[in-house]
Design a protein around this nucleic acid. Sequence first.
DNA 1: AGAACTATGTTTTTT
DNA 2: ACATAGTTCT
Length: 733
Amino acid sequence: MQPRLFPGDEQPAPPTPAAISTEVLNPAQYAAVTHGSGPLLVIAGAGSGKTRTLVFRMAHLLEQDVPPESILLLTFTRRAAQEMLWRAGQLTGQSCRRVMGGTFHATANILLRQYGHHLGLGSGFTIIDRGDAEGIINLLKSSLGMSGAGKRFPSKRVVLNLISGAINKATTIDDLVFRESIHLAEFIQDFHTISDHYRQFKRDHGLLDYDDLLVFWRQLLAESDRAREELSSRFQHILVDEYQDTNQLQAEIVRLLASHHGNVMAVGDDAQSIYSFRGADFHNIMRFADQFPGTRIVKLEENYRSTQPILQLTNAIIANAEQKYAKTLFTSTEGGSRPLLVAAANEAAEARYVADVIEERRRAGVALDEIAVLFRSGFHSFKLEIELASRGLEFDKRGGLKLTESAHIKDLLAFFRVLINPWDNLSWNRILLQLEKVGPKTVQKILAAIRDADDPLAALAAYRPAPGWKAQFERLTDTLRRLGLPDQAPADQFDLVMTYYEPVFEKMYYDDYPRRRKELDQVRVLISGYGDLQAFVDDTALDPPDVGAADALGGEDEQRLILSTIHSAKGLEWDTVLVIGLADGRFPHQNAQPGEQYEEERRLLYVAATRAKRELYLTYPKELVTPDRQHLRCAMSPFLREISPGLYNRVERAGAITQPLTSDYPIDLPPPKPRTSVPTAPGEYAEGMRVSHAFFGLGRVASLPGPRRVEVVFDRHGSKILHLDYARLEIVG
DNA sequence: AGAACTATGTTTTTT
DNA sequence: ACATAGTTCT
């Protein structure tokens, strides 16, 4: 198989092809990051051009006639790799086609398909992502004989954690126990049962999750001497971006890859580590020098992105961090206005204010795609999305739901996945469930019949359907037979699937199939860019396109406002940035526990604020509506409260309110329901108090383990940790 | 019994 | 928008 690369020049130019300037480094720094060999660590603050140092290094190597195929570039997103390769190409005038560049996971995928035989790992595997959780749960439940029974296990959250690899974190079990409100001992036992089954399940069906890709890659390097020799002589130069976001496995892979020659350059900023929930460990960056003796360290502290007032505020945010590499960013950029801190009456007022600012900035001549609105969680922008839509402002939303996570896209992908890997029961499950009159039980029977066949497709064709669904079943097997014929372009296979799937689909999603149909058309555009299905299926799991991006791909690429979660905004910058929802309880996230989690939330705010080049707005609503329609007052985020008010200008009650406030409260709203529980300030519960729970019965409060949580020892059900936002708890006497 | 339908509840962040 | 629980239909 031809190695599949991530060439910069096969892709369209990045959206902001601004000429790359070497001025961000002084001559000494430039020499330090480009010349010489051996391990090199660049510790750099936000906006200091750290990614550019990697581009310079790569360009320098190419100019020294280092063969491009001996360079391996590892980045956090594929987009970042593409942009860096493109820029290095611009600098050198050379093609960077043959540089291997991409995320750890995508690179692992390529290498495992090339070298997998060293591990006895065939190339017939499918990569699963969190969109597969639902199917995995169903199949696990039936294999555990739990179908219908307990709703608790395997819960989606547990399976999501298993898939995304966060399971490597020691804290995971504690974290899950909190959320599931379950007794620890039972939970751990069930948890181990589930993870054992999950492992076996993946093995049986040729599925690899995110962690497996890295585990196998490390295994390849650690256990096969020949593979390690081959790989480390193939890649003489390793370049790693965003090193603070690597996990243990990734750090180990870098170490093994570079163990022969030590030519590794890593770049990162410990203050921007925001992925520990996924297993990232910013201590990796601190340990780098120990792992690679003779490491040269370069510190970049000058910020070229933001104006002085913005920088002063961001420095203040991070100054309160408990643990950090001491680093104070400075800029020689003069002028700039102070960031604005805006308190709005409620979420609707906040949304109106934000939309007003956007319109005003546009009138001032700022391009729409130079403005971004950032927030902690995907749903925090819902109100704003409505407001923007009503004003006719188009936007791209990043983060939140991915295109490949919607049900109809998953359905479609399932067909391609069984073509590539006919033992992928997860996808069979999805396809067969689409048949009318066929439910989970019948699917189990069919799967049992084809599971051990050498040719599952033939076995399926030979299956005897019940009369009720015979006709549709035969259409299915016929479609599958024609899909398997050789020499078809992916786009043709797409059309073939659609002739079968379209009627099914229109029936299943009768209420909104035109909208979904549009998204399927976008998938056709995506798929026609691929030479083979394998590549397409891998890419959708490793780097799922988001809805907005696919939209832009299908239509005209006009400038659009960006709405993004802070996590998805990493590494990007805009002229004007508005960070919304900075209210206590929203930011930091209410589940964030004191200590490391809380500190990560602080770094998250730091990342958000440092995205701004010239204008920064921080907004929060003074009132939030709870799920049961109660209006709760809320304060500003504690991260903002601890900052000296001299660093920002304050706007009380946002600008032009275009509608009377009452419009936020529909008049026909029923009065708030009296709650059966006593939802309360945590302070109301105290140790020793007698309480009653709708399901668990009577018990006694044993402790208050965290905000909004109580541990109760129930007379009949033992000890439980309950979350007061959900639990229906009443104080008795 | 199993499939299909209806009502209700929930949603951190993601390669 | 989706998952789940409970209910009704075949």
